[in-house]
Simulated assay, not measured.
Amino acid sequence: MDKPDHKKIGLLGGSFNPAHEGHLEISLKALEILGLDEIWWLVSPGNPLKSDDDMAEYNERFLSAERIAGDHPIIISDIEKKFKTRYTVDTLTKLTDEFDHDFIWLMGADNLAQFDKWKDWKDIANTVPFAIFNRPSYSVDALNSIAAKTLSEYKIPTSNAAELYMKTPPAWVYYEMTENPMSSTEIRRNNKRLQT
């Protein structure tokens, strides 16, 4: 029997530079199909795979996440800043040590396509189950990626997504019905165009 404070929590990490409707779509769909209690948006102090040149100040990114999340069951978290972690593998190690929750890592298909470039990506896959959400034009690259092929035997059908939290990692699901084309990069490009 679960403890009263035990929850099923989806973790969506990122720069949120800025947060946008695509982040929200993934989160709301994750709440629905995975049967989660809440989502934590982990606003990263810095992304090792991205340049800091175009990165807005941390507080600005955090506030953009709060605005987009609104009153949905989404917690905007500065836990990576508190943990002083820069890599997902380190954040997940600390989270699973510190909290007695069922965590599921959430990410877009664009991240699955490059997941093998993440530090200790196989350790990440062995720490918590994860759910991948389609992004327009990324599904082929994502499903043919090194990570997807390496972990193919651990992929569960979308119809069993609500059971993902009970699976021993590695375990993952690919949800194809998210199609929001929004990206933080495109938002920044459009903002620059408006300013010139």
Rank of each mutant, 00 (worst) to 15 (best):
V173F: 13
P136G: 07
D78F: 00
L12M: 12
L164V: 06
D110V: 01
K82Y: 03
S145Q: 08
W121D: 00
P4Q: 05
Y175Q: 04
A65L: 11
L63T: 13
A125N: 07
A148F: 02
D97R: 02
Q114Y: 09
W40G: 03
N180R: 01
P129I: 05
K50A: 01
L143R: 13
L112R: 05
D5W: 15
A142P: 11
E153N: 12
A19Q: 02
E186T: 04
I33W: 00
S184V: 03
A19P: 01
G10P: 09
A69Q: 12
D5K: 04
V173P: 08
T127N: 13
P170Y: 09
I39C: 07
N59G: 10
W172S: 05
R135H: 12
L143A: 03
M177C: 12
N190M: 06
S15I: 05
A162M: 04
L12E: 04
L36V: 08
R193E: 11
E60D: 08
P169V: 04
E57F: 07
H72A: 14
G108L: 08
S183C: 10
N144W: 09
E179Q: 14
E66A: 02
A162P: 00
G108D: 11
S183L: 03
R67C: 08
W40Q: 09
I146F: 12
L63V: 09
Q195D: 06
D120R: 09
Y87P: 00
D102E: 08
V128N: 13
I79H: 09
N111M: 11
G70D: 05
N59M: 01
K122S: 12
R86W: 14
R188S: 10
A161Q: 07
N126L: 02
M1D: 07
P129H: 10
L36N: 13
P48E: 11
S15M: 06
S77I: 01
N111E: 11
F62E: 13
L95E: 06
R189N: 15
I132P: 07
F103Q: 05
A56P: 10
L63E: 15
S159W: 00
S152G: 03
D52S: 14
S159E: 15
L31P: 02
E66K: 15
N134V: 01
F103L: 02
D110H: 06
K122P: 02
I33K: 14
E21P: 02
I74G: 12
M177F: 14
P4L: 11
I74C: 07
L11K: 06
G14Q: 02
E66M: 12
Y174I: 00
G14C: 03
V128M: 11
V173D: 11
A161C: 07
L11T: 11
N160H: 14
S44Q: 09
R188I: 06
D5M: 01
K7H: 13
